[in-house]
């Protein structure tokens, strides 16, 4: 089986937000909608204070609460682990937005553009009416992954088959790959490093793994 997952090395992330920008470019998201965000945390108390950058977004959970509450079956989980939304079925009730403990979902009810009322040529060309009034979120760049698989590429290794945020990460903090493949990049990183998953106590089984220390420390 294949199970797509991501690792985010907190020791490497410098908070440059290039992943956020790449995601917004790849998905043409309107102002205020960020499928991939990088949180800027100040942890500890003076004098032991440290700054941590934490990439977040849809965790493509093993047991996605967004899918469980969806009254329309618009939210589904693929066999490879990706949680998807069918924009043509979603009624925009917002229930999934509330059920997601990662604040990863958005609903935009009217067209919004970077420069207020007027769309740029790029925004106008790529505007997708289907996304109005329904839930939207990170797809792990499913189109790129599927394209890559159809053309014999390896997601997470070949850039054409890899999520835009991972491609853009200049610190190589983000990695994407098949968790079930013992030779995949993400599996090797998880074997070599200590990791945690956000809000794991909620039983969602999130699939972004945060690396925080190498095992040999």
């Amino acid at each position: 089986m294949t199970k797509w997952a991501m690792t985010a090395d907190l020791g490497r992330c410098v908070g440059c937000q290039t992943c956020t920008t790449a995601c917004r470019h790849a998905n043409n998201t309107p102002p205020g909608v960020q499928y991939r965000k990088v949180l800027d945390m100040e942890v500890g108390e003076f004098p032991d204070v440290r700054r941590v950058f934490v990439p977040v977004g849809c965790m493509h959970c093993d047991e996605p609460p967004c899918r469980d509450v969806c009254p329309t079956t618009a939210t589904t989980k693929r066999a490879d682990g990706m949680v998807m939304i069918d924009y043509d079925i979603c009624i925009g009730c917002g229930y999934c937005i509330l059920a997601c403990p990662y604040q990863a979902r958005y609903k935009v009810t009217k067209p919004t553009f970077a420069f207020k009322g007027e769309a740029t040529a790029n925004e106008a060309q790529r505007f997708d009416e289907r996304l109005l009034g329904v839930a939207q979120k990170c797809t792990f760049c499913v189109d790129r992954v599927d394209y890559g698989l159809a053309n014999g590429l390896t997601p997470g290794v070949d850039p054409e088959a890899t999520p835009a945020c991972v491609n853009a990460c200049l610190a190589k903090a983000l990695t994407f790959g098949d968790l079930d493949d013992p030779n995949s990049n993400v599996r090797k990183l998880l074997d070599k490093n200590k990791s945690f998953r956000m809000h794991e106590e909620l039983g969602t089984g999130p699939n972004i793994h945060y690396l925080w220390e190498t095992e040999d420390k």
């Binding site: 990662y102 945060y210 925080w212 220390e213």
Partner: peptide, 24 residues
């Protein structure tokens, strides 16, 4: 009284030769 979960980390990372730290 309908605040969401917010965000949390279990550990702060070890950067370079430094030590890892507490969560947040």
């Amino acid at each position: 009284a309908a605040h969401n979960q917010g965000f949390a980390i279990d550990h702060s990372p070890a950067r370079g030769s430094g030590e890892s730290g507490v969560g947040f």
